[in-house]
């Protein structure tokens, strides 16, 4: 038995089936597609989250706000609300962009590593992993 080969096969199998399942899912996307999808998801989540926060603020301070409200104050409040939303969205978009870029790079690196390991396995025993079964699904 080729212990080195068995170890490599176990490592690859473990990565594919357990440890790196999420990363391999990410690696299937193009970087731009993945980032676009995550930014869109971020937009919806931050919008809903901000609306909830505004709702909670109004619940907590509704009475005091309604007591001394003037038209000019209302304009300032709406402007502040929209400004806060834009700031929050910008902050979370940047954060999402950075984290998702890192995740995608890591996933691609892992995919390359797996492909390399599979190539090595194929080189070691071409009879077993023939050309008709080449690719990640062979192990």
């Amino acid at each position: 038995m080729d212990i080195k080969r068995i170890r490599r096969m176990v490592k690859v199998e473990r990565l594919i089936s357990r440890d790196a399942r999420e990363e391999l899912k990410i690696a299937r996307y193009y970087r731009s597609d993945y980032l676009g999808m995550m930014l869109l998801k971020n937009f919806f989540l931050v919008t809903v989250g901000y609306m909830i926060l505004i709702g909670l603020y109004l619940v907590g301070n509704g009475d005091s706000l309604l007591e001394g409200i003037y038209m000019s104050d209302l304009t300032v409040m709406i402007t502040m609300g929209i400004g806060g939303y834009v700031l929050l969205l910008l902050l979370y978009s940047v954060l999402t962009y950075m984290i998702c870029t890192l995740r995608h790079v890591k996933a691609k690196k892992l995919e390359r590593y797996l492909d390399h390991q599979l190539e090595l396995l194929q080189e070691e025993d071409p009879a077993e992993t023939g050309s008709e079964h080449s690719g990640r699904g062979t192990v």
């Binding site: 999420e22 989540l45 931050v46 809903v48 989250g49 909830i52 909670l56 979370y92 954060l95 984290i99």
Partner: peptide, 16 residues
């Protein structure tokens, strides 16, 4: 539910 949801939206989704 709101507490859980806000925690997920603003923090937990970055550390799954």
């Amino acid at each position: 539910l709101v507490v859980f949801f806000l925690l997920y939206i603003f923090f937990l989704r970055f550390a799954p």
